[in-house]
Amino acid sequence: MIFNIPYIAVAALILLGLYALIFKRNLIKMVIGITLIESGVNLFLITLGYRKESIAPIYTSSPGGVMAFPVPQALTLTSIVIGVAVIALMLSLVMHIYRHYGTLDVRKVRRLKE
């Protein structure tokens, strides 16, 4: 059971993120929703990095044994970097939206419809 906690956390984070995207009205909170999904996915990747009876892939002063392949860590780093770019872009767009619409309510930011 204790080993499943990360997976439960992943599911909780992703569902919370989707909840925030669908039910929150403030644009900033929607951006937070995206970050929540992102951290959920990153946590999932990191969790997958461990394989049973393996040790961390650090060569100096290694106790010996099978090392886990450090691919997920590399993926997570890339994903975090991309995430920062996306969040920065989103927040700057939110800023511009506030300038044009004078509100951050997602129900009012809909000049484009039909």
Binding site: L21, L27, M30, I34, V86, L89, M90, L93, V94, H96, I97, H100, Y101, V109, R110, R111, L112
Partner: peptide
């Protein structure tokens, strides 16, 4: 233009 920014935000989300 407000519309462009709005469309950009929708697209990125």
């Amino acid at each position: 233009k407000g519309e462009s920014v709005e469309a950009g935000f929708k697209y990125i989300v």
